[in-house]
Design a protein around this nucleic acid. Structure first.
Lengths: 335, 335
DNA sequence: TTGTAGGCGTTATCAA
DNA sequence: TTGATAACGCCTACAA
């Protein structure tokens, strides 16, 4: 199967006119006669001519394309963030190319390289939980390609980012649990390395503090997000002399695993009865015994906002201050 | 923020050698001295030189990139199919660019246009449920860009496709329900337009037929996959004088909506007690009352296979017969 | 109103 | 072993 793709030159040849005339006709250049324009357009349509974007990118030095790198799309949070980013980009005639890092730094580096080679005009990235340095991203910045971090930001202040205000989310959740009478509230948090984990924890601690409750380090544990790790955390919590009565989880999936653990392993024994996680996953509605509440994050809007910030950075001319946006989240009650 | 991206020319200028020497040095061309090669490599690394892929694509006429167009990534099935396709592509040094059609023909056409302009070497596509003709795909084929349809195939024989053997999946499911004693089995199917719906139905009918059971058209309905539409179907089924005792659903989500409907609207009344859907969604494990079974499809392998077929078509030289693959599926019991 | 020429970054061919 | 040159498809300033 040999490729046979029509070019401007082929059109020019057939009509016996010059290449530049064809180019102008197709681009609605004013200095082209009505007749010629029509002739060209008709032939182009008949030949199914489609401009070669690689050539245009190459020539213009602008790809009008945004790269998006996310950990994984099996996580609804990122899927929706991607959709939001795509949506905004499309409305502003930008294209999106995306890739999944599968939470591996090595793969993230490869993807960054791919984005660089593809000469994206800007990058949105949620770092892997392995990523400690952003050395592999510095060349992009040096090139003048703006980067907006989404959710998973690097541990520095000098960057553009868009995140969810998980501090407030955790704070709201713990306040609700406190109001329901709980005094032993565990925090089944995500990987310690993630900034978003640390912010959740800060919100958790702040709520306790406001209630003049001491923080018990035994009540805080970190799951790698694997089911095994989550179960290990739960085993630890349940082994405490004074078991927690409520749990704030990193996200809904973790909470469900925790609830399952309690159901399977704590029959009869005292165990947590109230659970709250992040995400407000749509599957929760199908559960006979849903968690107490869930913290809704609106990832679609998050992605859309990230793209908005990025496109503004790209088109906004001179160096701007670091854009740092925190989107609100909302506690949704299930009981 | 002005872009400042190093090129081969910049390297050549600094080292006071020619552009072509630099190019060869970077590409390990044998006819380059060890010294020169080293000098070039070091400077390139120091300048964070990254080749301009748009230029290479442009020059070579090969992008080494595969386009993937899917309805939506919020559907785990397609997310996993995408991951599988990406995985295979990466191992064979192909890149993937993907887009979501959101099940809109218009958007699908735009994406096809984007893929064409991007000069992908091949395309994997799952058509929208709106897509009746493949006119917008013909130019690609005329260009010699192979297309592999994934799951959502066009209603013709002359195409390459990779699907799941849903006929057999439905057949297995209905056989199981029959074995459990059911004689009034409803088929809560997906959009009639989708080939995959028709194949499910054929499997359903075939199983009934093997059991010498007549097919009751009242027991077959088609949801658009929206919750409202699914509820409307359920209302219809529940209004029958002889209500179904079991339901085969288009996919797990539809089944859960159906189960919820029964729970909310049939308290006390006779209603279906066994449910089977397609997908074997990972959330099913968290349900107190899961469906009876689910039909596992392995979409990751499906996407991977589609990519394998496509890359073979791309590199395989001359026109080959139509590749048509049906992946097996497996009934997973929950009760 | 149309055509000519140059150039974007890279590689391949051929000459030095 | 290295360098000069042309070419890929398209656009644009300038010339005709």
């Amino acid at each position: 199967m040999k490729k046979n793709i029509p070019t401007i030159k082929a059109i020019a040849l057939q009509l016996n006119i010059s290449v530049s005339t064809v180019s102008k006709a197709l681009n609605n250049h004013p200095a082209i006669g009505e007749q010629t324009r029509e002739k060209v357009r008709q032939l182009a349509a008949a030949m199914h001519y489609v401009p070669n974007q690689t050539a245009i990118h190459f020539k213009s030095g602008k790809t009008h394309t945004i790269g998006v790198i996310l950990p994984q799309l099996t996580d609804h949070f990122f899927t929706k963030a991607l959709s939001g980013a795509e949506h905004y980009a499309l409305q502003h005639t930008y294209n999106v190319i995306s890739g999944q890092s599968y939470n591996h730094l090595q793969r993230e580096k490869e993807l960054v390289g791919f984005m660089q080679r593809s000469r994206v005009d800007g990058l949105i990235i949620a770092l892997t939980s392995e990523t400690e340095s952003r050395d592999h991203l510095l060349p992009l910045e040096a090139w003048g390609i703006p980067i907006v971090y989404l959710m998973r930001t690097p541990p520095i202040k000098e960057c553009h980012y868009v995140t969810v205000d998980v501090f407030d989310g955790a704070h709201q959740a713990v306040r609700m649990l406190l109001n329901r009478g709980h005094r032993r509230i565990a925090h089944l948090n995500g990987p310690e390395m993630l900034l978003t984990s640390r912010e959740r924890q800060a919100g958790y601690l702040h709520a306790l503090q406001q209630h003049q409750l001491p923080a018990d380090p035994d009540l805080i544990c970190h799951t790698t997000l694997s089911p095994e790790s989550t179960r290990a955390c739960m085993a630890q919590l349940m082994a405490l002399p004074d078991t927690p009565t409520a749990i704030l989880g990193f996200k809904d999936l973790v909470v469900l695993e925790a609830m399952q653990y309690v159901k399977n392993n704590a029959a009869g024994r005292r165990g947590p009865v109230d659970f709250i996680g992040f995400g407000n996953h749509e599957f929760l509605q199908f559960l006979d015994t849903p968690p107490t509440a869930s913290i809704e994050e609106n990832p679609f809007l998050l992605g859309s906002k990230a793209m908005e910030v990025l496109i503004q950075l790209i088109s906004g001319g001179e160096a701007q201050r670091y854009q740092q946006v925190r989107m609100p989240c909302k506690l949704v009650n299930y009981k």
